[in-house]
Amino acid sequence: MTMTPTVQSTPEDATKLAAFEARIAAGEHIEPKDWMPERYRRQLIRMMSQHAHSECVGMLPEGNWITRAPSLRRKMTLLAKVQDEAGHGHYIYCATETLGVSRDELLDELHAGKAKYSSIFNYPTLTWADIGVIGWFVDGAAIVNQTVLAKASYGPYARAMIRICKEENFHKRQGYEICAVMSQGTDAQKAMLQDAVNRWWWPSLMMFGPPDSASSNSDELLRWKVKRYTNDELRQRFVNLTVPQAQAINVALPDPDLAYDPTSGSWRFGAIDWNEFWAVVKGHGPLNRERVAARKAAHDDGAWVRAAAEAHAAKRAARSTAAA
């Protein structure tokens, strides 16, 4: 990844930094051509590329069910959803390029297994109910994160999030509707739904990242409005939103410690298995190898196609120059 090396602070930088922080404090957006601290740029490249990679890798678990979707309507909405995800990935890669890093560089990192993406996509989609539950939990969690990111200080990212959130809301409603219909269905459908909820609940809570006590760089990110709330605050918000939804369709959340706390008005939940979280982050989830290999294979198998498009564009340019 091409990134400007960190330079020694100079008095001039201190002045710029003060002005930068003042703009952020005043609620202004930082735009691509504005001065920004190197750490801010790096943080954004990290977050935005992870987000873009997540959209692309996320096509795989859901794509797994497009050809088997149980009705034409479900097939179409799932195709449209996965297409949206490709669109989000494309949009965020473009927004990331405004920070001076190319999509090719970011993809090389992903295919080399060096870039991170949301760990949730390293779990398999075993039944159709997984497609409903992913929409409900995973898109639901993404909305909680992204609604906040839409107010982030970096203009291109914030604007991307506003557009993306609208579509994610649609996806979440579709996912929840799949679950709601199954919850009223046959015994086999109800069992399928409960099984998917059991498998996806904890990994979904892990989507908000490590607990605040173990998160290394939250303070600066909060001050620079790269993030607006801590991981634990967002996780709690997701739980509070989701528990009543689960009750409404009569599915059990797999946590015997789940209890309402009238003082805080929040749902307390049991201990998250952070060992599992870190294992998956470090590449030891059920499908880490397979997901990266699938994306890399698509990219490698498509090299001749991209080469053809470039060669054609170059020949066309040469022909029009010759004709002029």
């Binding site: 794509g63 297409q83 498509g302």
Partner: peptide, 22 residues
């Protein structure tokens, strides 16, 4: 065409092929 979803040579084609399939 929907079999291509997630496996196309370039992201733009993931979008285009899914769109045609849809």
């Amino acid at each position: 065409l929907s079999e291509w979803c997630g496996h196309a040579p370039i992201l733009e084609e993931d979008i285009a092929l899914a769109n045609i399939a849809l």
